[in-house]
Design a protein around this nucleic acid. Structure first.
Length: 506
DNA sequence: ATGTTC
């Protein structure tokens, strides 16, 4: 990186201009269809200086029909074709949909469940709790879930999401009300999901998986906006449970299937893009519709996955604390997806013909339906949007930002400026600073676990020591800094902070 | 992220 004065930075061949505090722009040039912006402090910018994040962000502006600007969130890092932490919206009629802009782990996301327990109830019983959770919640690579799905079951889950779980006694009506899209994408098309994807998914229904996925018992340590925290049912010392996982092999297979088919079918569009990994299907094409239907089905699958894990967690708490889950008020606070594409209506810049366009070409704004790609980015709708559940509509949508197993996590609420700045989106986590391979050279799983237990009273149990090393707190960016930038920009406002108590992972 | 290399 070079400093060309205070207001310009050059990273490789990418030139960034400082717009204001925490806002950097890649101006439109060459074959870019729009400018791009990075939301980052100086400190966070340094962390993406040496990888391909900024080139990938610039590449995303080459997608046909891209509207406004492409955005990179403060936790952004390099991904497949498109940054993790990237947001790009294209016109739903004249744009395109790109699986690389959504990610392999379709509807990777996170849910938080409240309890009325306090840290006093759990302190001293962490070993028992972590062992019981680990024994009862399936985790790790490969198969083995809470439900073994036959053909009919998997089809119903893909079509109906958490509504299927409600019918089968794995959910209560309140769980659906407190989930993004009420736990069901109506556009899901199970017929667009390959048999191979269904076969991979059917013995993984209700399983955490591996990598950065985890289930964590946490305690609330800080409250920043007491009125919003009250609306979310959060207070200091309270025990909450956070579940972070996705659509397992099923979503991965759907992404692979459609990347290959889109590359084969839309070679002309591919030729116009700077990176093959950005392969996209034109809006309105048969493949765009099919991929969207399959992706929505994977979204439903992931919601059922998190729902079954939450259901199992309620049972574990019932046994450990010898009370009904209702008596412990183990209610879903909210469930947010952070790897999705969605048809959403936004107020966007339009040209003299009324077509959505890049910001620089606009003469006016209008409401248009878009394909919003959020990859490693969380929807962050402010108070008033009809998509926000009734219980939270006056304060804004809950946003859950998981940090590393040594750092804790945040609950935010959708900020007043999110629609104007980021298509109603904010960050999704801390963001990695090094590769998994590098992490395994720097850390040893057992040592990490011992230090967390002895120094921080955090109890970690995992299928594999290698996973603990890959996910060591030291491989993540500073989640406090990520959230600070979101809060300062007004896209997601700090509500409360949590600290880990017990963590299980794959 | 991922039956951890199509």
């Amino acid at each position: 990186m070079t400093h060309d004065g205070d207001d310009v930075r050059t990273f490789g061949d990418v030139r960034l201009e400082r717009v204001r505090e925490n806002v950097w722009e890649i101006p439109r040039e060459g074959r870019m269809n729009a400018p791009a912006r990075v939301f980052a402090s100086e400190q966070l910018l340094e962390q993406i200086a040496d990888d391909k994040t900024l080139q990938q962000l610039r590449n995303a502006t080459h997608l046909p029909g891209v509207v406004g600007r492409a955005i990179c969130m403060p936790d952004g890092h390099q991904g497949y074709g498109f940054p993790v932490g990237g947001v790009a919206a294209t016109d739903a009629e004249t744009g395109c949909i790109s699986p690389g802009g959504i990610g392999y782990d379709i509807n990777c996301g996170v849910r938080m469940m409240r309890t009325n327990l306090t840290y006093d109830d759990v302190e001293g019983r962490e070993e028992e709790l972590v062992e019981s959770l680990f024994a009862n919640v399936p985790s790790g690579l490969g198969g083995g879930g809470i439900v073994e799905g036959d053909r009919e079951t998997i089809e119903a889950i893909l079509a109906r999401g958490v509504d299927w779980a409600l019918e089968h006694g794995y959910a209560v009506a309140d769980d659906l009300a407190h989930c993004e899209d009420e736990g069901m994408r109506h556009d899901a098309d199970p017929e667009a999901v390959s048999q191979k994807a269904k076969d991979r998914g059917k013995n993984q229904i209700g399983s955490l998986g591996s990598g950065n996925h985890f289930l964590e018992v946490q305690r609330v340590t800080d409250v920043y906006r007491p009125d919003v925290a009250e609306a979310f049912g959060l207070e200091p010392d309270q025990i909450v449970v956070l579940i972070h996982c996705g659509s397992r092999g099923l979503g991965h297979q759907i992404c692979s299937d459609y990347l290959r088919r889109i590359e084969e079918t839309h070679g002309d569009l591919l030729e116009s893009l700077p990176d093959k990994e950005l392969a996209a299907a034109p809006a309105g094409s048969a493949l765009a519709e099919e991929y969207y239907g399959a992706m929505c089905a994977a979204i439903n699958f992931a919601w059922v996955n998190r729902q079954l894990i939450m259901h199992r967690t309620r049972r574990v708490f019932e046994r450990v604390f010898d009370r009904d889950w209702e008596a412990m008020e183990m209610e879903l606070l909210y469930d947010v997806a952070h790897n999705i594409g969605k048809r959403e209506v936004h107020e966007v810049p339009v040209n003299e013909r009324g077509q959505p366009t890049a910001v620089g070409d606009a003469v006016d704004t209008a409401e248009r339906e878009l394909y919003v790609h959020r990859k490693g980015a969380t929807r962050a709708f402010p108070a008033g949007r009809p998509e926000v559940p009734k219980a939270y509509r006056d304060v804004g949508q809950p946003i859950i930002i998981p940090g590393s197993m040594g750092a804790g996590s945040y609950v935010l609420r959708g900020g007043e400026r999110s629609l104007e700045l980021s298509f109603g989106s904010t960050a999704h986590g801390a963001g990695r600073t090094m590769s998994r391979t590098q992490a395994k050279n720097e850390f040893w799983g057992e040592t990490v676990q011992d230090e967390l237990r002895d120094q921080e009273k955090i109890y970690v149990k995992a299928q594999s020591g290698a996973t603990v090393a890959e996910e060591a707190p030291g491989v993540y960016k500073d989640v406090d800094e990520v959230v600070r930038v979101s809060d300062e920009l007004g896209i997601g406002d700090k509500v409360a902070r949590t600290y880990p108590v017990c963590n299980i992972k794959g």
